[in-house]
């Protein structure tokens, strides 16, 4: 049954989530914006350009991909919104990140369930790479 408590619980969860994502997105967006203006982002982009080319992404897309995998999706969002990307590129990054993100935390969770860490990492990173390559050709 739905009571006032239901809404209250939902609002509390919602608020907590928004606070959590704000704590990550705002600093990431800020730092990436600074990097953009100090040419550091151009430098990163040049290094990763050959690697990102296969996915149809610019070199700076390495930033959301790395942040999403090491930290979480919120951090990746902060980076995605602070660099310039086309709708196709955002979709490719989104699919890649949806398969493979928050690796340290989520791998620990799957280990607790009893699935091999190596298997989980191979599957997730493998799916991300394959989906990125295929999507770039298909869409």
């Amino acid at each position: 049954m739905i009571t006032a408590n239901t809404i209250k619980r939902g609002a509390k969860n919602g608020l907590n989530t928004v606070i959590e994502l704000a704590k990550v997105i705002i600093p990431v967006y800020f730092v990436v914006t600074i990097l953009k203006h100090t040419q550091v982002l151009d430098y990163i982009a040049t290094i990763f350009e050959p690697l990102m080319k296969g996915f149809g992404l610019p070199g700076e897309a390495a930033v959301p991909l790395v942040l999403g995998n090491v930290l979480n999706i919120y951090a990746a969002i902060g980076a995605i919104t602070s660099i310039t990307l086309s709708a196709k590129q955002i979709t490719i990054i989104a699919v890649m990140l949806s398969f493979s993100h928050t690796l340290p935390v989520e791998t620990a969770v799957s280990k607790k369930v009893g699935v091999s860490v190596a298997l989980v990492l191979v599957i997730r990173i493998g799916l991300a790479i394959i989906s990125g390559l295929v999507l770039n050709l298909v869409i």
Partner: peptide
Amino acid sequence: GIGGGLKSVLNIAIIVFPLMIIMEIAKD
């Protein structure tokens, strides 16, 4: 840097906040 970050959070908050309430309703 600050304004853009806030805007991104707001964009997502508009979705996540109602979603959490809907999920609780779905549970109950």
